[in-house]
Amino acid sequence: PREAYIVTIEKGKPGQTVTWYQLRADHPKPDSLISEHPTAQEAMDAKKRYED
């Protein structure tokens, strides 16, 4: 089974940042970016789909 994890990042100019959620996995390479999402819920949904 595949495993993934969610990383929170800040995008934008200082003082005007927006939080994004990255879905990452250690396949095919360590810390590979799988997808980016504007909400934590979307990231969790993507994580479930990826791991299923």
Rank of each mutant, 00 (worst) to 15 (best):
Arg24Gly: 01
Arg2Asp: 06
Asp52Met: 15
Glu42Arg: 05
His37Thr: 01
Leu33Met: 07
Tyr5Lys: 06
Ala43Leu: 01
Arg49Lys: 13
Glu3Arg: 15
Thr8Ala: 13
Ala4Leu: 14
Glu3His: 15
Trp20Lys: 04
Asp31Gly: 15
Glu42Pro: 01
Ser32Leu: 08
Pro38Gly: 08
Pro14Arg: 09
Glu42Ile: 04
Glu3Gln: 15
Ala43Arg: 00
Pro14Ile: 11
Ile6Arg: 00
Lys13Ala: 13
Glu51Phe: 06
Lys11Cys: 10
Asp31Leu: 07
Pro1Thr: 13
His37Ile: 01
Val7Gly: 03
Gly12Asn: 05
Lys29Trp: 14
Asp26Glu: 06
Pro1Glu: 10
Ala4Trp: 10
Thr19Trp: 07
Tyr5Ser: 04
Arg2Ala: 09
Glu36Asp: 04
Arg2Pro: 11
Gln41Glu: 14
Lys48Pro: 00
Ser35Ile: 01
Gln22Leu: 04
Ala40Asp: 05
Lys48Thr: 10
Ser32Asn: 08
Gly12Cys: 04
Ser35Gln: 01
Arg49Leu: 11
Arg2Leu: 11
Ala40Val: 15
His27Gln: 13
Glu10Pro: 05
Ala40Tyr: 15
Arg2Gln: 07
Ala25Met: 06
Thr8Ser: 12
Glu10Met: 11
Gln41Thr: 09
Glu36Thr: 07
Arg24Pro: 01
Asp45Gly: 06
Ala4Arg: 02
Thr8Glu: 14
Ile9Glu: 03
Lys29Leu: 14
Trp20His: 04
Tyr21Ile: 01
Asp52Phe: 13
Tyr50Thr: 02
His27Arg: 10
Gln22His: 04
Glu51Asn: 11
Tyr50Val: 04
Thr39Val: 03
Lys29Asn: 12
Pro38Gln: 13
Pro14Asp: 13
Glu51Gln: 11
Ile34His: 03
Glu51Ala: 07
Gly15Tyr: 06
Ile6Thr: 02
Thr17Leu: 13
Gln16Asp: 12
Ser35Lys: 01
Gln41Tyr: 07
Ala25Asp: 03
Ala43Asp: 00
Glu3Met: 15
Pro1Ser: 12
Gln22Lys: 00
Glu10Asp: 09
Tyr21Trp: 15
Leu23Tyr: 01
Ala40Phe: 15
Pro38Lys: 13
Glu51Trp: 06
Gly12Arg: 05
Gln16Tyr: 12
Lys48Ile: 12
Thr19Ile: 14
Asp52Gln: 15
Val7Pro: 00
Arg24Ile: 08
Glu3Gly: 15
His37Asn: 00
Asp26Tyr: 09
Met44Gly: 06
Tyr50Arg: 03
His37Tyr: 07
Ala43Gln: 01
Ser35Gly: 03
Ile9Trp: 04
Ile34Thr: 01
Lys48Gly: 07
Val18Ile: 12
Lys11Glu: 05
Thr19Cys: 07
Leu33Gly: 01
Lys13Asp: 13
His27Gly: 06
Ile6Tyr: 02
Pro38Ile: 10
Leu23Met: 03
Gly15Glu: 06
Met44Glu: 13
Lys29Met: 14
Pro28Val: 07
Lys11Tyr: 11
Gln16Met: 14
Lys48Arg: 13
Val7Arg: 10
Trp20Ala: 04
Ile9Asn: 03
Met44Cys: 10
Val7Gln: 06
Gln41Gly: 08
Ala43Cys: 05
Ser35Leu: 01
Val18Trp: 08
Ile9Asp: 02
Tyr5Ala: 02
Gln16Trp: 09
Met44Arg: 10
Pro28Glu: 08
Asp31Tyr: 15
Val7His: 05
Gly12Trp: 05
Thr39Gly: 03
Glu36Tyr: 03
Leu23Thr: 02
Pro30Leu: 10
Ala43Pro: 00
Pro14Gln: 10
Gln41Ile: 11
Glu42His: 05
Val7Phe: 05
Asp26Cys: 14
Glu10Arg: 09
Val18Pro: 01
Leu23Lys: 01
Ser35Pro: 00
Thr39Gln: 03
Pro14His: 10
Leu23Ala: 01
Pro28Met: 07
Ala25Gly: 07
Tyr50Leu: 07
Leu33Thr: 05
Glu51Met: 13
Leu33Phe: 11
Asp45Trp: 12
Val18Cys: 08
Lys11Ala: 05
Gln41Val: 09
Arg24Gln: 03
Arg24Ser: 02
Asp26Trp: 09
Gln41Pro: 06
Lys29Pro: 15
Tyr21Gly: 00
Arg24Glu: 01
Glu36Val: 07
Lys11Gln: 05
Gln16Glu: 14
Gly12Asp: 04
Lys48Ser: 09
Glu36Leu: 04
Pro14Asn: 12
Leu33Lys: 03
Lys13Glu: 15
Ile9Val: 14
Arg49Ala: 15
Arg2Val: 11
Val7Ile: 12
Lys47Tyr: 05
Gln22Thr: 04
Tyr5Ile: 06
Lys47Ser: 02
Ala46Met: 04
Tyr5His: 06
Thr39Trp: 03
Arg24Met: 10
Asp26Ile: 08
Tyr50Gly: 02
Ser35Glu: 02
Pro30Asp: 06
Thr19Lys: 11
Glu3Ser: 15
Leu33Glu: 03
Thr17Lys: 12
Ala40Gly: 06
Ile9Pro: 01
Lys48His: 10
Trp20Pro: 00
Ser32Met: 10
Arg2Phe: 12
Lys29Ala: 12
His27Phe: 15
His37Phe: 08
Tyr21Glu: 00
Tyr5Pro: 00
Gln16Val: 09
Glu42Leu: 09
His27Ser: 11
Arg49Phe: 09
His37Pro: 00
Lys48Gln: 12
Pro1Asp: 09
Gly12Ile: 05
Asp31Met: 12
Asp45Ser: 10
Asp45Ala: 13
Leu33Arg: 03
Ala43Ser: 02
Ala25Thr: 15
Tyr5Phe: 10
Glu42Asn: 04
Glu42Lys: 06
Glu10Gly: 05
Gln16Arg: 11
Tyr50Ala: 03
Leu33Ala: 04
Met44Ile: 12
Pro14Val: 10
Lys13Leu: 14
Ile9Arg: 04
Ile34Gln: 04
Ser35Asp: 01
Val18Asn: 08
Thr17Ala: 09
Pro30Arg: 11
Ala40Glu: 15
Gly15Phe: 07
His27Asp: 09
Trp20Val: 08
Lys29Tyr: 15
Ala46Gln: 03
Asp31Gln: 11
Asp52Lys: 13
Arg49Gln: 10
Lys47Ala: 05
Gly15Gln: 05
Tyr5Met: 04
Tyr50Gln: 03
Thr39Met: 03
Ile6Pro: 00
Ala43His: 00
Glu10Leu: 14
His27Tyr: 15
Ser35His: 01
Glu51His: 07
Gln41Leu: 11
Thr19Tyr: 08
Thr19Arg: 09
Thr19Glu: 06
Leu23Phe: 02
Ser32Glu: 06
Asp52Ile: 12
Gln22Glu: 08
Met44Lys: 09
Glu51Tyr: 08
Asp45Val: 11
Gln22Ala: 04
Ser32Ala: 07
His27Trp: 15
Arg2Gly: 11
Ile6Met: 04
Pro28Ser: 06
Asp26Leu: 12
Asp26Pro: 13
Gln22Cys: 03
Val18Tyr: 09
His37Arg: 00
Thr8Pro: 14
Glu36Phe: 03
Leu23His: 00
Arg2Thr: 09
Met44Thr: 08
Tyr5Thr: 04
Lys29Ser: 13
Trp20Phe: 08
Tyr5Trp: 15
Thr8Trp: 07
Ser32Pro: 02
Ala25Leu: 06
Pro1Arg: 15
Lys47Asn: 02
Trp20Leu: 06
Ser32Phe: 13
Pro28Asp: 08
Glu51Gly: 06
Leu23Arg: 00
Glu3Leu: 15
Lys11Asn: 04
Ile6Ser: 00
Lys11Pro: 02
Ala43Glu: 00
Tyr5Asn: 03
Arg24Ala: 02
Glu10Lys: 11
Ala40Thr: 06
Ala43Ile: 02
Ile34Gly: 00
Tyr50Lys: 02
